[in-house]
Design a protein around this nucleic acid. Structure first.
Lengths: 275, 275
DNA sequence: CCGGATCCGAATCGATACTG
DNA sequence: CAGTATCGATTCGGATCCGG
């Protein structure tokens, strides 16, 4: 019997023996966003020891969760098998759960593009969602969240990924030019945000469909984003308290944002411990 | 920052830092069945070191998942807070997941009443369920599964619990006499099962409602139960191959059992690893 | 730079013994 | 019954190193 077997013949133990190991689920979290190279994973999990990453990837492969795929242009990515992708509901449930218990960040907690992407998916309320294009900045992460017909698509704007966004081959024609990522210097880590920033108009670009139209709102959030999604703060309050800013686009989109991305808190009275 | 912090500000990490620790989720699994004393937990988790059990209970308390409750007759149980009970969907999802990847048991894997109870809940298909009373024996565990109006209730018959089944106070009158648990010697661990065993009729007991009526079927299963629930075997095949037996009641109830408790396997082709 | 493998001190876990 | 104490065995974390 393996050293880390729980010694029980039971579904829960079987699942936990594989994906319950330290770091394993976080690797899966990042791979749910897209295929990743070894180095990408290491960057997305800054505190993972490289030997652990290596060991977990091996275990996840043997468990049929992850697959190594050689890249056409001489490289190598890890991606989830369909079997691994089936973990998404569990991941989303865990994400919701954690969100509800999350306090303020530790001073040296990081926010990574993949974790923020999954957080958006976690909070996404398909039935309350109205179509819109958001650009979301949290610390140095920038994402593009597209809501269309009750479906959420999240693309990574910054830090730029070394990997193409979805599948290695851009199906139709060359990869579309994306306007430069708005550069306004490093986003402040504090909740206090700069005044609305009148960016120079970019080259004429129509507000058409597709991932390249102007976003309806560019939201820059410090940690205030959590309180907005939890409903602790209304959009108006968030703006008033400067824990959040809409640096371009209409502030009213913050309302639809808050409806689209929401995780209801558990009632407080359940958290006290007795005796 | 705590030594086991993942260093990320993210819901998944927050959740996993608490309930992702070794043994933590299995403690929750058993507590989802009902309140348990320290010793009960230790019995249900035979290989847990006692110091780890102690540590996890402390952490789960601080995390608001578990509560210590002094018992009226001088004792002490741990029970889930409402907040902890909210983990049930995650637990069921994990249980399903693990069930789908579970192979045959290791020679010294045990089956505990609580793990089997949760496995039944995991496999329960409310919409396909037809009302029935099953008595299920797996190795030395015996459970009573009552399906009524799309609701499943599982009671533990053996090994007998030292704790009352639900809540410390039997609400109406003294606890009803239950006929002795059918004793037919230790259930064989092998898949081959004894011939149908004509138990002596118990004292006249009508087939009325409630948990005390005769079960519609007494099912004795070795490990064949997994293959039946997974649909790898039809009830008829399971009977023919002697991986299962209906020792009392109508064998046709095995069909409704298989409809009521079912976990569809993931398609096999997803499990291969490449390169 | 990518994809790891190796080494070693620190923290955690597992097994057993022991105590109020 | 409900844990605490102890101690060797593992695992983890952090750093370095190495072949392509």
């Amino acid at each position: 019997m393996g050293a880390r077997s729980y010694g029980q013949y039971c579904g829960v133990t079987t699942a936990v023996e594989l994906i319950g190991e330290r770091w394993a689920l976080l690797i899966v979290r990042d791979l749910l966003v897209g295929p990743r190279r070894y180095t990408d994973l290491k960057q997305g999990l800054p505190r993972i020891p490289t030997n652990i990453l290596s060991a977990r990837l091996k275990e996840l492969q043997e468990g049929g969760v992850v697959r190594r795929v050689p890249l056409h242009n001489c490289g190598l990515v890890y991606e989830l098998t369909p079997y691994g992708r089936a973990l998404e509901p569990i991941m989303l449930a865990l994400g919701r759960r954690g969100f509800q218990t999350m306090g303020e960040p530790s001073p040296d907690d990081v926010v990574t593009p993949d974790s923020l992407t999954m957080a958006l998916r976690t909070a996404f309320q398909a039935d309350a969602a109205t179509d819109a294009e958001y650009e979301l900045h949290v610390r140095d992460v920038a994402l593009r969240a597209s809501v269309r017909a009750g479906t959420l698509t999240v693309a990574r704007l910054a830090p730029e990924s070394s990997l193409p966004e979805r599948g290695p081959v851009p199906e139709r024609g060359p990869v579309p030019e994306r306007g430069p990522v708005p550069e306004r210097g490093p986003v402040p880590e504090r909740d206090t945000l700069p005044e609305r920033d009148p960016l120079p108009e970019r080259g004429a670009k129509r507000r058409d469909e597709g991932p390249d139209r102007e976003p309806d709102a560019v939201i820059v959030a410090g940690r205030g984003i959590r309180r907005l999604i939890a409903g602790e703060l209304t959009p108006a309050e968030a703006l008033a308290q400067d824990v959040l800013a809409v640096v371009r686009g209409d502030e009213t989109f913050l309302d639809s944002f808050a409806r689209t991305f929401h995780i209801a808190p558990l009632t407080e009275l359940t958290k006290e411990s007795a005796s």
